[in-house]
């Protein structure tokens, strides 16, 4: 393998129903820095049905080139067609790095592509850097339930690949009118040759704000004592226009469903404000919320570990404090 042949930083652009996933724009920001450091191009790879027009957005967020695979076969995400497109693109244009959002789709696609290339794939990266001269990607990630951080390297294979957690990298400020080069590609794959079919898509349209996209998350724990007590969390979230989060123990007690669980085995959130109310702050919970902009904890035990992980803490009874907060925010 001749490393000289592999040039440029790529970002897989995840798209759904005409909208680019926020994480892809964040990765264009991170990718821009890596590309500048190496003095190479930044490219986006856009796969989908009727997606070509989205190239403009990709340029405006920092890409120099966009490779487009636009075909009805890509109507819904399916591993095999998407994988074949990306493999085709790699073969033709040989990047040194490919970044994917660590979303269910990004992880699924990256795992398959890595196996077929083959190359190394670093999972759930939260820190990225590159060696200027060698082009070695330094991708660091939490492992063992957040107990350690490890830098994973891929020294002998190209491209180097990583999935990167949403909301960790920063998107560049959009530069309207910024343009670049569109490269249209295609693969010859017939629908009959694809072994999976999407029969139906069910959107569970909850009016509620999605917890991983919300600016404010109000999360409650076992300290709320019961499903009835937990209603206080819903009420505070409502007045703040935020989403409701929960510890695993609350989910297991059946007070709220699993979509709301924050932590290692739930969702990772990075809202601008995170309320942790009646949550003790177990490590598995902390890894899911510790990158939030502002963490406010309310707990009656002054020694609760959550107080080590918050910006502001109140030692007190949730049943006294939360109703007051609700009342005051209503007026504010």
């Amino acid at each position: 393998m001749n490393f000289e042949d592999y040039k440029g930083i790529w970002v897989y652009i995840e798209e759904q129903e005409g909208v680019i996933a926020p994480v892809s724009l964040e990765l264009l920001g991170a990718g821009r820095q890596l590309a500048d450091k190496r003095g190479v191009e930044l490219a986006g790879v856009l796969i989908g049905n009727r997606v070509k027009h989205l190239s403009q957005t990709v340029f405006e967020y920092g890409a120099d080139t966009v490779y487009v695979y636009d075909d009805p076969i890509f109507e819904h995400y399916r591993t095999e067609p998407y994988m074949y497109a990306l493999l085709d693109c790699c073969q033709k244009h040989k990047p040194e790095v490919i970044l994917y959002g660590a979303t269910p789709t990004g992880k699924d696609l990256a795992s398959a592509v890595a196996t077929d290339l083959p190359t190394g794939l670093t999972a759930d990266t939260t820190m990225l850097d590159i060696e200027e001269d060698t082009g070695l990607l330094l991708a660091s990630r939490p492992a063992f339930g957040g107990n350690i951080m490890a830098t994973i390297l891929c020294k002998k294979y190209r491209p180097q690949m990583a999935t990167v957690r949403p909301k960790v990298m920063k998107a560049l400020k959009r530069e309207p009118g910024r343009t670049g080069k569109v490269v249209e590609e295609r693969i010859w794959l017939r629908e009959e040759d694809v072994r999976t079919k999407v029969l139906e898509i069910v959107r569970e349209t909850t009016k509620k704000v999605r917890i991983d996209e919300a600016d404010i998350v109000v999360a409650g724990g076992k300290g709320l004592e019961s499903k009835e007590g937990f209603q206080l969390i819903h009420q505070l979230a409502d007045v703040l226009g935020g989403a409701v989060g929960a510890s695993r123990d609350v989910v297991e007690a059946g007070w709220i469903d699993h979509h709301h669980q924050v932590g290692q085995t739930g969702v990772t959130v990075t809202p601008k404000i995170y309320f942790a109310i009646g949550i003790s702050g177990a490590i598995q919970h902390l890894v899911g919320m510790q990158n939030s902009g502002l963490i406010i904890a309310i707990n009656k035990d002054p020694h609760a570990p959550i107080f080590q992980a918050c910006h502001y803490g109140i030692v007190g009874d949730a049943f006294e404090i939360v109703p007051l907060l609700i009342e005051h925010f209503k007026q504010a």
Binding site: T119, C310, I314, I321, H328
Partner: peptide, 30 residues
């Protein structure tokens, strides 16, 4: 293809500012 380079323990958070005063004052501060 992947090798583990450096491993380190993430720094434990420093701990936050505890809000003082009676409950009304605390709520006002929040």
């Amino acid at each position: 293809p992947t090798v583990v380079g450096k491993i380190w323990t993430p720094e434990k958070p420093q701990g936050g500012t505890m809000l003082e005063g009676d409950i009304q004052e605390q709520v006002q501060q929040v």
